[in-house]
Design a protein around this nucleic acid. Structure first.
Lengths: 167, 167
DNA sequence: TTAAAGTTTCAAAAATAAATGAAAGTTTAT
DNA sequence: ATAAACTTTCATTTATTTTTGAAACTTTAA
């Protein structure tokens, strides 16, 4: 396999993976492209390389910046803006985890708390509902905390130990 | 909030959460419904409760069974089939993690290995590509292993300790 | 057997999500 | 101030994913 082919395959695969995990395909592809580029890329280049429209490129680059995993760069003497990706993978994981937690898990937790707090527990059916949603709330909360804490592992001796044992 | 309203809200929320994480909405909703039901539910009931077609119900129940998180049950003297969800949340998490790893992460790892193994490293650009995809491969592999090992935590004293510390 | 009760399949329709592109908006150099 | 270079927005179009529903299939009881 030659370089260009490999690069393309990587971008496609990363895009597919993204869309299976609820991140839009183009967003993931742009990210992939920036990840493996050794130098900043202009919007024009992104459009060209992925064969997408200006609007699409603009919106998804913006989204990536909102997530904090892509940065704008200015080159001296250049009018255009260039983009680079966060290349430190631990940092990347932290930011993605935080963002998804904030956007999706936290709101879901709120609802779980609400629905598990109804006072009606007259019937067996209702008791089971309250019991099960309460357990779910505790579980999701714990998982969310783990995600958060896991992101602190990298600078943390215990974390390293745990990872070593788990490996 | 009364019971019926709470139940509905829970089903809707679980459905939305599912679709944000790449699991189709109806599949997640059916799962939610079964999770909070204290007794087995027939396909007819699922259709009725979620207002979906027979085909849709059938396909998604099948998918849930393929994931191993919903079971068929037979009631004595009843022709129809009934369904129940895995209600143990640790077990549920294990099965979802295994399934997604198998379906999505493993294939992605295969591609990452391939593209990071191209022998061309003539230019700076190519060297950076190989370097970055190699790191990504290692990272994803490690994350995948963690997911797998994390699923063994529940029966494991060290795991409990770690969770306690992380909490 | 056979027919009733139930389940699955899959081509077509509907719903949803994403992409386009042209117009509006910015910024910068002169 | 203005015009060139570039970016953003968003109504419309396009692509993708999900759902439907009717026909085919399977199972069971008589």
């Amino acid at each position: 396999m030659e370089f260009k082919e490999a690069k393309n395959k990587f971008v496609q695969t990363w895009g597919a993976l993204g869309s299976q995990w609820g991140i839009n395909k183009t967003m993931a592809q742009i990210h992939a492209l920036l990840m493996v580029s050794n130098e900043p890329i202009s919007m024009e280049d992104v459009m060209e390389e992925l064969q997408i429209s200006r609007g699409n490129a603009s919106m998804n680059l913006r989204a990536l910046m909102d997530w904090g995993i892509v940065y704008k760069e200015y080159k001296a003497g250049e009018r255009r803006e260039f983009f680079t990706a966060e290349k430190n993978l631990d940092e990347l994981a932290v930011k993605i985890a935080r963002e998804r937690s904030k956007r999706e898990i936290k709101p879901a937790l709120k609802v779980l708390k609400e629905v598990s707090s109804i006072d009606s527990n007259a019937t067996e059916e209702e008791r089971h509902f309250v019991d099960q949603t309460t357990k779910l709330y505790d579980f999701v909360l714990k998982a969310d905390n783990m995600l958060e804490k896991a992101t602190e592992f990298k600078d943390n001796w215990l974390g390293r130990l745990v990872i070593k044992i788990m490996k």
